[in-house]
Design a binder for these strands. Structure first.
Length: 161
DNA sequence: GCCAACGTTGGC
DNA sequence: GCCAACGTTGGC
């Protein structure tokens, strides 16, 4: 009966490509195109019901924009087999797909995004991966205390138990 | 647009 | 297995 504890994540997306507003409009979306092994491995650890901070990268300012929930666990990313896709990977084999993706659903958009600078300036968030210099990882785990703090900073409706 | 910080590739 | 060259990410 003991269930796996909920795990918490942060997922980066460039808002020009896909933003929290796009997710709010769509309700849910597949998280395609991750082509980094470490990020892929974290996605494979995700379970339905896990929550993730939706982070806007490569924009100004970058920062935490909202919350989403994992609604489908990892399965093969079809774009790796699509020759026309920018994510096509000629080395990936159908019988042993190299890349996975999960589906996420919209939970909430923060009233105002919490900028990366604000995250870095918060002493309680010390050690959070995304605040560390040169952190490029697009999918990363987040400590519960850090996740809660970000929710608090954002005045979020989402609460963790 | 620059460039630091990686990750990947391929020659050896 | 090493490592130089190259490509990508993403803040600034």
């Amino acid at each position: 009966m003991p269930k796996r504890a909920m795990q918490l994540w942060l997922m980066k997306s460039e808002p020009d490509v896909y933003s929290i507003d796009d997710l709010e409009r769509d309700g849910s979306e597949c998280w395609e195109g991750v082509r980094n092994y470490q990020a892929r491995n974290f996605m494979r650890e995700m379970a339905e019901g896990d929550l993730a901070i939706f982070y806007h990268s490569n924009t100004k300012p970058p920062g935490a924009a909202g919350v989403c929930r994992i609604c489908r666990k990892a399965y093969p990313d079809p774009t790796q087999f699509d020759r026309k896709s920018q994510y096509y990977d000629p080395k990936s084999k159908k019988e042993d797909p190299r890349w996975s993706m999960v589906d996420v659903e919209f939970v909430e958009k923060f009233a105002a995004p919490i900028s990366l600078q604000a995250l870095k300036d918060a002493p309680a968030l010390e050690g959070m991966r995304v605040t560390q210099k040169g952190s490029r990882l697009s999918v990363q785990p987040v400590d519960k205390a850090h996740f809660k703090r970000v929710l608090k900073m954002a005045g979020a409706k989402t609460k963790l138990r």
